[in-house]
Simulated assay, not measured.
Amino acid sequence: MNFVSLKVLHSKTLLKNCFFSFLNFDIKFYRQVHKGRPNIFLAKRCCKSTLFPRSRCYQHLPNSFFSTVSYLGAAEMANKSSEGLALKHVLSKLHAFASPALAESWDNVGLLVEPVTPRPISNILLTNDLTEAVMQEALELSTDLIISYHPPIFVPLKSLTTKTWKERLIATCLENRVALYSPHTSWDVVKDGIPVAGHGTGRLCVLKKPISILEAVDRVKKHISIPYVRLALASNKDQDSLITTVALCPGSGTSVLKGVKADLWLTGEMFHHDVLDAVHKGTHVILCNHSDSERGFLTSFADTLTKLLDDKVCVRLSLSDCDPLKTV
């Protein structure tokens, strides 16, 4: 048998992306039990010495960890693969949340890759950027649809070969019948989209009570779970200076924030000279890396999409997706 289905009893013991030895199987678990409810995990038998790097975490779990164990043969696996929703249905739900027509005219959004031979959508992987590491993760998870916030196809491709990483991504999707969808700027303008409230690609927020710029830095780091940000203090101001207005834009905020009067600009990245211009005009600037300023939204959207699809599809967050820039 190639697969084993396990019903997990002790959700708190599970660690994301860890491997466990059980009944002579090396089993990869991909997510914790959602909100304490037992869940069914399908795990492929594999050889840890050849398929997985030694740096991964291995544990041995007793049989009592599981409430049910059943082995799935070819027929059962065929039945499992036939479950799920039609791609058109999933797309209709995505469009209802944010129509591709809302995207900027220069953007490339919507369904970017559609397999010629359709298959039901049972597993969806959410990522901010589709990299080769995320693509490999998607294949290991038997993903049917990848939703990548940034469109992997932006500059037109003249060929689909193995020469460049972008070409390899699209070729891999087609070869494995994985659909690819990108919402990008269509998510930026909906009420519950990438920015936190209101409408438009940026937000101007008025705080209920003033806080220091140092407290603002701490709140940003905690909210998006990163250890460092870059801070440019306004001229003649210090870290104890109070702020009451914040203009924010996820991603690259130069074009959106330019000319906006606020005590603080919060965004992912900006051009050097625009930062200089801002601080000389009395505005603090916090930069927290392009994708780090966007990625947090996917956590809440995973729950939103699960509800939109009536809990009939497994929606996962990529564990491989991360900003390429690190402060060292």
Rank of each mutant, 00 (worst) to 15 (best):
A197G: 04
C205L: 15
C205T: 15
E215R: 12
W165A: 09
R177Y: 03
E167C: 11
K191I: 07
H199E: 08
L174A: 06
I170T: 08
I211T: 01
I213L: 03
I170P: 09
G200T: 03
D218T: 12
K209N: 12
V220S: 04
E167S: 14
D188V: 06
C173V: 12
G193I: 08
K191F: 11
K166W: 07
N176P: 09
D188W: 07
V189M: 06
R168L: 13
W187P: 03
I194C: 05
D188H: 05
V178S: 04
N176Y: 13
R177H: 14
N176T: 04
I170C: 10
L207V: 03
A197T: 13
I213S: 01
T201K: 13
P210Y: 08
V190K: 02
N176Q: 11
W165N: 11
H184K: 03
I170H: 09
T185A: 07
A197Y: 11
E215C: 05
I194E: 02
L207Q: 02
D192Q: 14
R219S: 12
V189L: 07
Y181W: 07
D218S: 15
T201E: 11
I170L: 15
P183I: 01
N176I: 02
I211R: 00
G202T: 06
C205F: 10
K208T: 12
R203H: 03
W187D: 01
L169T: 06
L204R: 04
K208H: 11
L174K: 07
I213E: 00
L180E: 05
D192N: 15
S186M: 08
K209G: 09
E175S: 12
P210R: 07
S182R: 04
V196S: 06
S186H: 07
G200I: 03
E167F: 12
K209T: 14
V220A: 09
G200N: 04
C205Y: 08
S182D: 06
A197K: 14
R203Y: 00
K209R: 12
I213W: 00
G200F: 04
S186L: 04
H199G: 03
K191C: 11
P210D: 07
R203A: 00
N176A: 07
D188S: 11
I170D: 11
A197L: 14
V190T: 08
S182A: 15
S212P: 02
H199N: 09
T201N: 06
V189Y: 05
H184E: 06
W187Y: 12
H184C: 07
W165T: 13
H184P: 05
A216Q: 03
L180N: 02
K208F: 02
E167P: 10
V206W: 02
H184N: 14
T164A: 09
S212V: 01
K222F: 08
L180A: 01
V189G: 04
